[in-house]
Design a protein around this nucleic acid. Structure first.
Lengths: 193, 193
DNA sequence: GTCTATACTGTGATAGAC
DNA sequence: GTCTATCACAGTATAGAC
């Protein structure tokens, strides 16, 4: 039995991670390792070689997704924006971004919510949330504004999780409202664009 | 084998539902039917008699939790409040309610997020979300205010899902902010209680 | 009609062949 | 380093006691 693969271990890992994301998005966390391995073009044993257990695979996938979100926020940072609330505005833009085809980020969150079932992932998410809390608090915004804006952004991101169908136009308007809230304590929500 | 139980079928069902909630809260959706049955004091076969499959059990549990939230909002309705946004304010109060011991509601949401893994539950949640959307839109609030307030409330409810530890004082302040937003288009978030 | 006991099926995990 | 063979156990289905 056994064969050497025509690719590097790192490539196989990424292949398996992407396959896991695709399969679990469709069939939920109860998707079998067989299915995931097949999607990646390796055997089940091959998968288990790279990820000691299903939990290990899912934990790595969650880590990958958390990092993807962090990258999205970083990309949303406006270099010209140096005012207090700079990071918060990037956070809002990343959360409500509708430019990506098929709302990749929203799907990512929905997938993450599935993974969070696993205790190891929950712990990962907790540490990540704590990190965000620290960074956002240091962003220079009044606490009340920060709490309101971040809660709303989080709510919008979580909406698809609960089956709420959010239309692009509504997300854009909410994004504008939230950005305005970070720029002044009292932005009239009724004069929205 | 077999025995008549010293209780009605309905009581057994509720016993099993409560047990499922308790066990799944602790061990996740991967909790075994054996564990749940044992917690309820019946055999695994007995459980399967009342709920044809694990999916069926989880679907019933989700339905029960959705109804619990709906009841919470109804209880939060202020009889003296007849102004536009009446339902929205109850929704906010129910979402941010910290009076219940151990934040039962927040735990309920976290549990629901676990259950939503199952496709049948996702469909249930979608229908429920659509229902809320319809009712809240008919609540007489400007669309921009509604979207902002509901998103923020949803975000606060979902926060524990992501491991964010929300302190009671912060939730109270956010609740005040959101209620004020439903009463005027421009409530200064900085004068919070 | 309700339930217990138990056998069946398929999944995740492991040991070891190549 | 990769994969096959196999094991242990969870979810499901069924038989039959009350």
């Amino acid at each position: 039995m056994g064969r050497k693969a025509g690719r590097s271990p790192g490539e196989t890992r990424r292949l398996l991670l992407d396959a896991a994301g695709a399969i679990i998005r469709t069939r939920g966390v109860s998707a079998t390792l067989d299915d995931i391995a097949q999607q990646a073009g390796v055997s089940k044993g091959g998968l288990v070689y790279h990820f000691a257990s299903k939990e290990d695979l899912i934990r790595a996938l969650a880590d990958d997704l958390l990092q993807t979100f962090r990258n999205a926020v970083e990309s949303a940072l406006d270099p010209a924006d140096t005012a207090p609330g700079r990071l918060t505005r990037a956070y809002v833009r990343a959360c409500l971004d509708t430019s990506q085809d098929e709302r990749v980020l929203l799907e990512t969150i929905a997938l993450l919510a599935q993974l969070i079932t696993i205790p190891a992932v929950a712990e990962l998410a907790r540490a990540d949330a704590e990190c965000w809390d620290r960074e956002l608090r240091a962003d220079g915004l009044p606490e009340e504004v920060l709490a309101l804006v971040v809660s709303a952004a989080d709510g919008a991101v979580n909406a698809p999780l609960w089956g709420t169908l959010t239309r692009t136009a509504n997300l854009r308007r909410l994004e504008d409202q939230l950005i305005r809230l970070t720029l002044s304590d009292c932005a009239p929500p009724s004069s929205g664009g």
